[in-house]
Design a protein around this nucleic acid. Structure first.
Lengths: 347, 347
DNA sequence: GTGAAAGCGCTAACAT
DNA sequence: ATGTTAGCGCTTTCAC
């Protein structure tokens, strides 16, 4: 049973009111040229009069276009994603598109479930901000490569579109900065190996470390969650590795790392320098004041939408692949005189 | 032009393969009883064989049901909302529903735009987590009260469903705790007057303050953003109001407040106690270690979905109105020996 | 118990 | 330049 307005104005009503046929109304709607100014005006009047709004459902049934877009993220509570989502939604809404945010939890099964369901609902396209093990599944479910653009994490496939940051360059720049500040033993809390942004950042780190003879890096495996940062730092501290600086794979992980440092009574940056990646708002806050690598989140989101819509609209498909530059954001967690740290609680 | 799979298996194909009519297939699909076990089996076999999946679009056209739900939030980058969104999505996905998150920015125009567009796309129902000035618009656009449930902020209308926290009680409990800790001059950074959760919390504060003779409250107007917290605290500090404790309308505002306190070199809780509201994850982090009032975000989201789905499914409508209890979360920002504060930077 | 047929609201040939 | 008509894939009376 439908729960929609009991009566809705249809194209037939408009045609009737304007004294024309439905196809003429449809033409006016679709802004077809083959319609006389006078007729068009009459139809428009009727449309306004009746407050007629075409049914996207009926339209979708015949055209196959729903203007429904999906944004796949691994975990919306990771502060990076809300910012990305906001910019994407902002960009998409202008063209009458709706975007659904789906949490994959980096699980292939979750991705498949979401996509299968949405495809059924008539999904037009996908922006995947967290490709990982699910890349093959996504590509095969979607069938048509035009319908997807990857962002944040670069896909393995070379024939699909993506908009990502220069993760290698950003990580290298950050590492070089720490090295030039005198750090020699630097820890890197990595992300999972299936996430290309993580591996690229690791490459950048390793590369930069290799440029300095006596530099010695430590790498911890992890994922993108706060827990991951806690775990790695706890381990390093317990092992007394003699690290003087730590780079976290992203700001969320850095938050976890910072928590442990604080609880252990260590001061930043004197006892330990700490940096993240992403350039989220929370990192910018004086409460964290975390050095990070700006990904220009808003710009990435905007570009991803543009690329996707362009692809959806064109017949011939040429993948667009963009790598945007990053920017180093230096803050108290690595810079400055090393003010007081915080003790076990609020210190 | 459609960009969907070039060929899709239709109900006609299944009917053909099973040697029955389309209506029979439809009956099997809808789990109608009037179908013989043997026929049903044959149809099922054909469905599996062809991997047939009914088109929700066609279904929507005739039934008016899309399984599309909207979640209205004021700003997804406020950490409260991603947590809420996650629980809502989690709950909704189980019943085959898709939820779209929309940022209203607390602007009536934005709400209307979103709703109008989504209604066109065939929206089934709405969970509004940020009612404000847009309440009338929402109700009139939706027409049917069964199609909406309010959460987080209580609506003005008494004949619609909502699931909210005991904002009054939570704020009162928090205030009483601060009073019992010896605080007498307490500042309250309020939210906008159109947001019922804000006004309820203010009521709770005022009420509790009134119970202690020499207690003196200060109230600052604001919104729900970090900026709001910065502004209020800056002002109070500049005016030397002699406050010893501050309650922020939510954790995001508290974050802004904390930033200023840190930058001014004040220690928590000795120089100034600080508390928030919501019980977000970020507040729990040792980096903030912010006393807050737990709203049981996940539970609220879950309930909101249940209520909405129940309403959508039933013919007769009786609004469900739930007020869930809150829980005080005491952390370093109000408790403890008052360890070192942090200086102008990382202190 | 099952089938035939009439739409749901719209678009796109194909006529005129 | 405009009208007629045949679907899009499904549900649902109404017959049999």
């Amino acid at each position: 049973m439908g729960r929609r307005a009991s009566w809705r104005v249809t194209i037939v009503d408009v045609a009737h009111a304007a004294g024309v046929s439905v196809s003429t109304v449809s033409r006016v709607l679709r802004e077809h040229v083959d319609v006389q100014a006078e007729t068009r005006a009459r139809v428009q009047a009727a449309i306004n009069e009746l407050d007629y709004r075409p049914s996207p459902i009926a339209r979708a049934l015949v055209s196959g276009e729903t203007r429904l877009l999906a944004l796949l993220v691994s975990d919306i509570t990771n502060p990076f994603y809300p910012q990305l989502a906001k910019s994407i939604e902002h960009e998409a809404v202008g063209t009458g598109h709706t975007v659904v945010i789906c949490n994959t939890g980096d699980q292939v099964a979750e991705t498949s479930r979401h996509l299968t369901r949405l495809l059924g609902q008539g999904l037009d396209g996908v922006i995947h901000a967290a490709v990982g093990l699910d890349e093959a599944a996504v590509l095969s479910l979607l069938g048509d490569y035009r319908r997807v653009v990857f962002t944040n994490r670069q896909p393995m496939s070379t024939s699909v579109s993506y908009v990502v940051s220069d993760n290698f360059g950003g990580a290298a720049e950050l590492t070089r900065h720490l090295l030039s500040s005198g750090h020699r033993r630097i820890g890197f809390i990595c992300g999972p190996s299936y996430a290309r942004n993580a591996t690229e950042r690791l490459r950048g780190f390793t590369h930069a470390m290799g440029e300095v003879a006596d530099a010695e890096g430590a790498v911890a495996q992890g994922e993108f969650s706060k827990n991951s940062g806690e775990r790695a730092v706890t381990k390093w501290l317990d092992e007394s590795r003699g690290l003087t600086a730590i780079i976290a794979i992203n700001d969320a992980v850095a938050l976890g790392a910072m928590e442990v440092l604080i609880q252990r009574g260590l001061r930043m940056p004197t006892d330990m320098a700490l940096a993240g990646f992403d350039g989220t708002e929370v990192a910018a806050s004086p409460v964290m004041s975390l050095t990070s690598v700006d990904q220009h989140i808003e710009e990435i989101g905007r570009q991803a939408v543009r690329v996707l819509l362009k692809q959806l609209g064109s017949e011939k498909y040429v993948p667009t692949q963009e790598v945007l530059p990053t920017r180093l954001l230096l803050r108290d967690s690595t810079e400055g005189p090393g003010r007081l740290g915080r003790g076990p609680g609020r210190a």
